[in-house]
Amino acid sequence: MTIATAAVAASAPADGYLYDRHTLAVRVMHWINVIAVAVLFASGLQIFNAYPALNFGRSSYTGAPPVLEIGARVAPSGELSGVTRVFGAEFDTTGFLGVTRAADGQWEPSAFPHWMTLPGTRWLSMARSWHFFFAWVFVINGALFVLYSIASRHLARDLAPTRADLRGIGASIRDHLRLRHPRGEAAKRYNVLQKFAYLAIIFIALPLMIVLGFGMSPWLNSVFPGWVDVFGGRQSARSLHFIIAWLLVAFVVIHVFEMIVSGLWNNLRSMLTGRYRVTPGPSDE
């Protein structure tokens, strides 16, 4: 603890004090990113619904069956059922995948249900319009964030793990599993698992999503012919784009969960107004 923060903490009242956690730039870019990623995900699922299968290889028709396939089956009685095949194993997923209720309550063949997709009806061209507009929003915003993080030292100061962080990985994992979160001055810094999660998302997962998206474009494929084979071919790029999209959903679920258990309103306020309340913790006593 530095002398300056010790002085502040010492003079702080018992319920702690507010400090500026997130700069305006980070807050604005965070929420633009939330909107862009949400639109990209929902419109991406609508695009997926046009060909609800995943293949690996240079094309969809290599002789090997898809690794994932979502479809609808019509019984002789006319009844629809949703069928999902994963690595050859078949599951009845009526209601969730393959056959779902439309907005009007009627059963319809649709890989992902309408409430997850943008638009909420079968409309590939509109989904593509949303997807490619918000792809620009996402890429420009993301590039600005990376430049800002380097220039403002947000990356070096707040995101890069320190030696002490690396030594404390084991303890941090234990703390996370027990849902124990640092209080006091320690709460002002990102913990080591948080740092690794953010770095992996910012510098690995999201850039990969962009490159894999490029990999599906026949024109961008041609700029360096064959580059998409790095991922195992164009259809592999599409499948990986889909899989990483769901890994991003997993990240968001964990991120929101951690925000809730470590103080929802405090965290939310810090990402809206910038102000974060530091309450005295055991380490400050």
Partner: peptide, 10 residues
């Protein structure tokens, strides 16, 4: 390779 707008290719 023929890339369909739907997402498949051949």
């Amino acid at each position: 390779r023929h890339d369909c707008v739907e997402g498949w290719s051949a």
